[in-house]
């Protein structure tokens, strides 16, 4: 996608600048952007290393198993078709926990594993099952305890209150997830 958008953005900007006589501004804009990207990356480093470090501790303890247990009622509500497929349910909850803890690198491989387990029991191999639909929608709703990336960026931009967005993010995420889940339940009934 970006292989198409990126050149369009740049070419369009330059042509527009030529027409509107803003070539000088664009020239300066290019080099300012590069300095900004470097500065951002340096400040970004601190928060990112903090979180990947802390979450590595969480990963190596029993915490994830404990949390998996807490998720059981929710999993049963979201995936009624997976009643007997214990391994799929286990992988789905691991994926959800990894998402909640912000372990993106761990969440995706776990999620792919869950998809493969569900695919084994799929009668129509080229079509998503009900459970798969629900699983993907939940993964597109970013359910995360601490929005670390955003906080890192806010800190690097000298925010007076970098973590003040945590609660608003929780509320917005839950609303988005509810809409996604409701819509998916509807699609499961209507689209076969």
């Amino acid at each position: 996608m970006l292989n198409i958008l990126w050149p369009i953005f740049i070419i369009l900007s330059f042509i527009y600048a030529l027409i509107s006589g803003k070539v000088n501004e664009v020239n300066n804009g290019i080099f300012e952007s590069l300095t900004d990207a470097v500065e951002l990356s340096i400040t970004f480093l601190g928060t990112m290393c903090l979180w990947t470090g802390i979450m590595e501790i969480a990963k190596q303890t029993n915490l994830i198993n404990k949390m998996t247990h807490l998720l059981k009622p929710l999993i049963n509500f979201l995936f009624p078709d997976l009643k007997r497929n214990e391994s799929a349910k286990q992988e789905i909850s691991m994926n959800m926990i990894a998402n909640i803890l912000g372990l993106g690198n761990a969440a995706t491989p776990l999620g792919i594993k869950a998809m493969k387990t569900m695919q084994k029991e799929n009668a129509k191999k080229d079509t998503l099952t009900n459970s798969m639909m629900m699983f993907i929608v939940i993964n597109t709703a970013s359910i995360q305890l601490i929005p670390t990336n955003v906080i890192a960026i806010r800190t690097s931009l000298n925010s007076q209150n970098a973590t003040g967005i945590i609660l608003p993010v929780w509320i917005a995420t839950i609303i988005a997830a509810i809409v996604g889940i409701a819509f998916t339940k509807f699609l499961i009934k209507k689209v076969k």
Partner: peptide, 28 residues
């Protein structure tokens, strides 16, 4: 996200899942 999970198991028919996911995005 949709591309990764559907391509991992070779699925082509997604039963309108993109609309549900985008509706969730707009709601968010």
């Amino acid at each position: 996200t949709i591309a990764i999970y559907t391509s991992a198991v070779g699925i082509k028919k997604t039963r309108g899942i993109l609309i549900a996911a985008l509706a969730a995005d707009v709601a968010g």
